[in-house]
């Protein structure tokens, strides 16, 4: 493990931290364009965070300390998750410490803290949001793991950077199983990041909201952290998708030039993903809450079918 790899790891986390709100801004911008609205600035999410950091925090009377530390824990887990995902290079020193299963576990931990924090004040909206979030979560989590399983069947490892490296090194071929899982992953990504068919990130006063319902009692710095963590989560998911399905162009060593190249390439890939996300959100309508499990069950089914198709290929 040379120091360049450590540098790579460090730069990666910094890039994730800095660029996550940018991705969100880009998605919002594309969405506005597609819907014939004048687009907000690309930097709008940063402004939002800055504004929140300049306000007094207001806590409910009966908010416990769990409520107060949850934003830090959620934000911290998202930062740690960013360190496990190969965004720029695949030789991350962190590879051996935590594999994709641990990554999914980390996301689950963040979700659990978010839901618990939402239940803490004891408002109607909070508990409702928590319940729905867990409902989405318990279907999305197995789907994500099945997606990762398919990739790990092809590469004999569960470490995400190694999966990406092996997939990129393999000969270019159409893998039907990866087609299935890519769709499944996209569906999970929409659901997990509170995007449109499952949740609507743009509305507040709606009985069908999930993610926003859990943040209602947060303000100022806590809210800023939560919003930033949500942006990071989207960024992380996008990068997991890239590592699994478009793994080409990751630097396989810590060479600074290749790293620079990888940053440019990542920006390009994310721009496409963001635009695609905006397109999906514009084209689809919000599902009723009780259709959301059907949506996710479909994703689960797709992932399972991908697994079966893969098994048919490798079976002796």
């Amino acid at each position: 493990m040379n120091w360049l790899n450590w540098l790579d790891q460090f730069i990666e986390v910094l890039v994730a931290l800095a660029a996550a709100p940018l991705l969100l801004g880009w998605v919002n911008m594309c969405r506005a364009w597609l819907q014939n609205r004048s687009a907000p600035s690309l930097l709008q999410p940063y402004r939002g965070i800055r504004k929140l950091l300049h306000k007094d925090a207001v806590l409910a009377h009966n908010a416990s300390s769990l409520f107060r530390i949850a934003p830090y824990i959620i934000f911290g887990t998202m930062v740690a998750a960013a360190a496990m995902i190969p965004m720029l290079g695949t030789r991350l020193p962190f590879t051996a410490a935590a594999d994709a299963i641990a990554l999914v576990g980390l996301f689950a931990a963040a979700r659990m803290f978010l839901s618990l924090a939402a239940m803490d004040v004891g408002t109607a909206f909070g508990t409702l949001g928590a319940r729905r979030e867990m409902m989405v979560g318990f279907l999305a989590e197995p789907t994500l793991l099945m997606v990762i399983f398919v990739a790990s069947l092809m590469t004999a490892t569960t470490a995400l950077p190694l999966i990406a490296e092996n997939l990129a090194a393999a000969q270019l071929a159409i893998h039907p199983s990866l087609l299935f899982t890519a769709v499944a992953f996209a569906m999970v990504m929409l659901a997990e990041n509170a995007r449109i068919p499952v949740d609507n990130p743009a509305t507040h006063l709606e009985l069908t909201m999930i993610h926003e319902a859990m943040l209602l009692e947060y303000s100022a710095r806590h809210l800023a952290l939560m919003e930033w963590a949500a942006a990071l989560k989207l960024f992380n998911y996008a990068c997991i998708g890239l590592a699994l399905f478009v793994p080409w162009g990751l630097a396989s060593n810590g060479d600074p030039i290749r790293l620079g190249l990888a940053i440019v390439l990542l920006a390009g890939k994310l721009a496409v993903i963001g635009a695609g996300l905006a397109l999906i959100e514009t084209l689809s309508a919000k599902l009723r809450v009780f259709r959301a499990p059907e949506f996710l069950a479909t994703a689960f089914l797709l992932a399972v079918l991908g697994l079966l198709v893969r098994l048919l290929q490798v079976a002796r």
């Binding site: 393999a170 159409i174 039907p176 299935f180 797709l302 079918l305």
Partner: peptide, 24 residues
């Protein structure tokens, strides 16, 4: 991974899509 000619890869992919359509 042994090399499969592209056209057969496409047939395989089409087969998978056929399965998907059956489920739909």
């Amino acid at each position: 991974m042994n090399t499969i000619p592209l056209d057969l890869q496409i047939v395989n992919a089409l087969a998978a899509l056929l399965l998907l359509l059956s489920f739909s």
